[in-house]
Every structure is written in structure tokens, then in C-alpha cells.
């Protein structure tokens, strides 16, 4: 039963990942809230699931010539080095502290997307009114 629930939860987060939005940002809180799994294990699960999906997607993107390799080269060296250090730090941090920091992070991201979407919707409405004043 628990396996079926886990499949459903990861499938739900995968839907957002497929839409190009942070799938992991969903998987981590869902695993933590519904299954009481330790934050660091939720994080490692998400990271490994993402690697599996990303390898498949990267091959498809590379074939379609959608990857900007110059940008990749500029970003991956500092990003990978810092991510390694940050992961070492995360492993040493208590799960409770990690969970609170992560919660604040996703609330901020959520608020940012909410404000951005409302602003975009208002802009769309204004454009519609300008096009059809009646």
C-alpha cells in the first residue's frame, strides 16, 4: 500500500517536472509530510531521481540542438564545486534545521511565482481591454 502511495506522490511531482517546473520542490515536501521521511533522505532521493530523468532528457535535447554549451561551460564549474560544498554542509546539518530552511525557501519561491503570475494576468487583461474597448 505504501509503495502505491509513494508511486502516486512521485507521479504527482513528476507531472510538474514534466511541465518544466521544479518537480523536486514538490517531491521533497510530499515525502516529508506524508511519509515522515528524514529531510536529508528526501533530498538524496530527489537528486537521484532527477539525475535519471535528466540523463534521458539531455540526450533528447542534445539531439534537437537545444543546449547552449557555452553557457553550460560557464555555469557548471562554479555550480558543481559550490553544490558539492553545500551538500557536504547539508549532510552535517540537522534534518530539522534543513526542513525549516527548505520550507522558508519554497514559501518564498511560491510567493514569487504567485506575484509574477498575478502581474502577468493583469497585463493580459489590460491588453485585451485595449484591443476590444467594448
Amino acid at each position: 500500500m505504501q509503495i502505491l502511495l509513494l508511486l502516486a506522490v512521485s507521479c504527482f511531482s513528476g507531472i510538474f517536472a514534466g511541465m518544466g517546473m521544479g518537480g523536486g520542490t514538490f517531491l521533497i515536501p510530499l515525502l516529508s509530510l506524508f511519509f515522515g521521511i528524514e529531510q536529508i533522505i528526501c533530498q538524496s532521493t530527489n537528486v537521484l531521481c532527477f539525475v535519471l530523468l535528466a540523463i534521458i532528457c539531455s540526450v533528447i535535447y542534445a539531439k534537437n540542438k537545444l543546449i547552449d554549451y557555452k553557457v553550460v561551460l560557464c555555469v557548471i564549474f562554479p555550480a558543481t564545486a559550490i553544490a558539492t560544498l553545500a551538500s557536504i554542509f547539508a549532510v552535517k546539518t540537522s534534518s530539522d534545521v534543513l526542513q525549516i530552511c527548505f520550507s522558508i525557501f519554497i514559501i518564498l519561491v511560491g510567493a514569487f511565482y504567485f506575484i509574477k503570475t498575478i502581474a502577468a494576468m493583469k497585463k493580459d487583461k489590460k491588453l485585451l481591454v485595449k484591443k476590444n474597448p467594448n
Binding site: 509503495i3 509513494l6 508511486l7 502516486a8 506522490v9 512521485s10 507521479c11 504527482f12 511531482s13 513528476g14 507531472i15 510538474f16 517536472a17 514534466g18 511541465m19 518537480g23 517531491l27 515525502l31 521521511i37 533522505i41 538524496s44 532521493t45 530527489n46 537521484l48 531521481c49 535519471l52 530523468l53
Partner: peptide, 16 residues
Amino acid sequence: LVLVCGIGSLIGSLVG
């Protein structure tokens, strides 16, 4: 957990 969630995420991302 990685195996189960990996399968679920794969199915979900195709739907997404």
C-alpha cells in the same frame, strides 16, 4: 525509495 520514486517521477513527467 529512489527506485519507487524514480518510476513514479518518470510516469508523471511523461503525463506532465
